[in-house]
Amino acid sequence: MKKSYLLAILLVIVAVVLFWQTGNATSEYADFARAAETGNRVQLVGTYVKDKPTVYDPLTDPNYFSFYLEDLAGAEREVVLLMGKPQDFEMSESIVLTGRMQNERFIASDIQLKCPSKYKDEEAMIKNLTES
């Protein structure tokens, strides 16, 4: 048995251990119920509830943006995002949040918006292209 083979096997073992660690670092997208259960930082997917109050007043606090989100299980909760209101927020199809539950609110420190392609609607596209 050559030393390099031994080392390669060793590395494979290390890699497997690290991979297992990676497995631990991942989680399924949580919903509000699970986030409340664990109290841990989770990632959560949902959609913006348009007819509930949405608060962003940079004059009061530029790092406080509150809105309601419906998670994949259908539960609605208030979300407090600890930053300004992102561009195109209202247009988002779905929202990915990173944060934790605090009492009844979800405190989010990161947000990612999934926006529909600008030209999903061909008519809108042509309209846009013909307007001078």
Binding site: L59, D61, P62, N63, Y64, L82, M83, Q102, I107, S109
Partner: peptide, 18 residues
């Protein structure tokens, strides 16, 4: 602006001023 009940990391995320 102060907001209570935040962790240090979360407090750090609030990095915008008006």
């Amino acid at each position: 602006f102060l907001m209570e009940g935040l962790t240090e990391d979360e407090q750090l995320a609030r990095s915008t001023v008006r």
